[in-house]
Write a protein that binds this DNA or RNA. Sequence first.
DNA 1: CTAACTCCCTGATAGC
DNA 2: TGCTATCAGGGAGTTA
Length: 274
Amino acid sequence: MPELPEVETIRRGLIPRLVGCRINRVVLSNRKLRLPVPRVKLNRWVQGSQVKSVDRRAKYLLINMDSGAVLVLHLGMTGRLAFFANGTPRRTHDHLRFLLDSGVELRFNDVRRFGSVQVLAPEDRKSPQVFAGLGAEPLGPDFSTPYLMSRARNRTRPIKNFLMDARVVVGIGNIYANEILFAAGIKPTRAVGTLRKAAWDRIVEASRQVLEQAIACGGTTISDYVNSSGEAGYFQCELKVYGRGGEVCQSCGSEITRVVLSGRASFYCPRCQK
DNA sequence: CTAACTCCCTGATAGC
DNA sequence: TGCTATCAGGGAGTTA
């Protein structure tokens, strides 16, 4: 389930093997993804064009083409993006294949098809509604205590839902929301309007620390995630609360509690998190 | 207006 | 063995 650290790990893995390559051909499956696959735009703007650079915004990968277009990929829940030698047999759930002039191909594989592929043509780049309304990057300068306090003022929703709301802050999904709140010592159910400045400072600090550490570990592999070379991450070994309901807190020995917030499993230590 | 719920989708797993 | 129910959850859309 790729969140910011997994998408960033993939981005870093794509750069050395993709930048400078020409995409000779784009091959599509006929399965539909979360959004319609823009086959005409892929042919017009991506096929035959060269990759200039690879960026990330939120959980979107932005592949900038020398045609002036941007290929925008979202991995959803189970999306994978990885390199294969040309001629590798097509696997189930391979939806896009980018055949490169380097003799390898980049494949987009997605079991549950919550992922998406979009092409921003040069004329679309002025007002890309893809990114409209997205909140702050948690590793960027806009993610700060004053920003979060202004967004949380007089709100009642639980802090965990707030951290997972892409209109507030992007890239944080269920795993990292749980881990960040453990690191910050704050219970996931706390109403955001009741948090004081010191607590927000800890949230900002914990977000950066947890996400940076997860990137350094190559992301978290629970079931599906692998990087662009097909390798698992190992941040799952560092998880303190996610998926550990009923286990013992590594800090204090209390039992990790599991609750459901907005339909999402949430884990916390009742003693370390207030 | 906010906040919570529904839907999309497949595979792993539990229970009978 | 084989069936059904449940769970995983990002993000868009809907409802209260």
